[in-house]
Nucleic acid binder design. Sequence first.
RNA 1: GCCGCCUUAGCUCAGUCGGCAGAGCGUCUCACUCGUAAUGAGAAGGUCUAGGGUUCGAUUCCCUAAGGCGGCUCCA
Length: 700
Amino acid sequence: MQVEGRFGPDLQNKESFVSSAVSPPDVQPALQPSLTVAAGTTPRAALEAAGVDLNGPSGAVVVRDSAGVLRDLDVPLDAADEVRPVAIDSPEGLAVLRHSTAHVMAQAVQELFPETQLGIGPPVENGFYYDFLPQRPFTPEDLGVIEKKMTEIIKAAQRFSRRAVSDDDARIELKDEKFKLELIGLKGNANASGNHTPTELDAEEASQVGGGQLTMYDNLNRDGSLAWTDLCRGPHLPTTRRIPAFKLMRTAAAYWRGDQANEQLQRIYGTAWPSKEALKNYLSQLEEAAKRDHRKLGAELDLFSFPDELGSGLAVFHPKGGVLRKEMEDYSRRRHEESGYEFVNTPHISKQTLFETSGHLPYYADAMFPPMEFEGSNYYLKAMNCPMHNLIFRARGRSYRELPLRLFEFGSVYRYEKSGVVHGLTRVRGMTQDDSHIYCAKEQMGGELKNLLDFVIDLLRDYGLDDFYLELSTRDDSPKFIGDPAEWEEATEALREAAVQSGLKLVPDPGGAAYYGPKISVQARDAIGRTWQMSTIQVDFQQPKRFGLEYTGADGERHQPVMIHRALFGSVERFIGVLTEHYAGAFPAWLSPVQVIAIPVTDEQTDYLFEIANKLKAKRIRVEVDSSSDRMQKKIRTAQQSKVPFMLIAGAQDQDNGAVSFRYRDGEQRNGVPVEQAVEEIAAFVARRANHSPSVADFG
RNA sequence: GCCGCCUUAGCUCAGUCGGCAGAGCGUCUCACUCGUAAUGAGAAGGUCUAGGGUUCGAUUCCCUAAGGCGGCUCCA
């Protein structure tokens, strides 16, 4: 169970991608037949007797016993049992492969850098890492040297040999490994005091020591001599020879046990695969992902940049990025208008007292830009819009007849993100949220949340994202969560109901709520399977209280409204980043900064194309005529690289016929289309907001 | 914020073991007028991220800062 946990949803909240591209989610490996292992014999013997493959790219590397525990092939079972082989290319087999490769890497590191202390070395999505405390940090050149040493170890076909040890013996054996000693101590604590101690091991640490009997894994040379040893729960590959393909990827720093207060270790990440080909595929998928990087495409397509003069995490949008942004916003505004939202505007700065009222200060002061002192008051750049929307609600008495009151704003906020976390458009210091706050009566909350979730999903689909799952973030018993538990319960249930009703997969996220209320977040998978957190919907009982928000009910009494926060894009910047990567820069025609490029075969057709361009412009199509002195082929290449959906090409023949020729983004062409028809086709395609690239098949 | 690496023309990158810097693409000019992914020739373009230090001399070595990249931590 713990093994599954390590590769399950807990990894999905990171924006680590490629995973699902490599191994599609929810694919179950074919169930292996079970085999009987006699008491005192090894699983290997049973597998060999049954003719199970133990060497190929799908060969078995460990077995799963009847209790669900993974076991080494060469460790005899105490009692007879039914086991199933676990193939190296199954999710669990891959984890074993990667964990064993991590051991080989640690062995190589300690051989090359004998003073190096060991941290932990678990498998992770697509690979593994091992944390070290070396004499000096690793350099990129070190990786090559370590890889070479690893190859030697793999060629030596060292056996992974399991050996049980007592805690005391382990302490003696590992007296020079302070981090391992700490893990042994933690394991002891966890056993003594049961669950949920503050020092509880996480899944990755548990893979080192396990919960009960400690075990060591000895790497034995073919002559039986000891090459290396590590404290480890196992299981492992039979021998290092069973590692078909690996590569060290990068070095990084990581805090011991993930805590900023602890010592910082040097981490090396690697990847390992059941075949050279699988490794190659993985690496080319990484390349594909790199090609889609919105930071790179943003520069290439002239969409946006991050001038140093502005400071880290502050983007400027160029004209082409501006068009994209405007189209996105325009459509969003229209949909909000149709769905009963009212548009408001609020300033970017405010006196300190507002954020005191809202409760954001002092909790979030260090995530806000420092205040400016002015006329005896401290002014803050706003990091959130909600307090200002609350003031709008409170500006006059409110009636139940006005509820739900839905206030919407493209609100710019500024957050003082730490320097190390700023990343392209997805993590910035200045952003515009498509922010909305909905005030409703408690009785309306359930229905409002359902409608809201439908609206959100529907709108995301219109932008071409169509693969979603939801995350329900709830409170745990941490003291950071404030408010009445009954209210939490009610809001959580309302969110859960809305989520269930949506029919989407729901992943629980206990403890992940905001301090003031539970939330649903919508995760979207992009074109190459990476998941991104998009929209969030949050229930808040706190701010209405703090701001004293109330409305007069049908009963003539004053009531406190429920407040729902929601942002759909998250931020406009981030959404543009995600869409850029989703479409690899080849945006849907309706969002494309330039929708049509007209290319004359010779200069003779330039004026003719300008006339056609005018007809398109009359239909609000964004069109450019390439009247440069380049040759036609070059213009086509340039247009292709700019990823415009439509190229219109005209030569003398087209001009004589009052026609024009199409070249679509996929390189397909359609010649001799009458001008009026061509204009209509383009305008119609853009108007219907199709998200796929236009091609011949669309216009038959 | 922490650790490591990086910063040379608009972009991608060479290069100088310390002696006034180079390519391709892009830009501009001229010629070519061509039917679906690069016509040819020429020109312009750099205080080598910034500040300080060492040195006869620093883009190169050292220090500091800024920005970027990869992680960690964080993400209301």
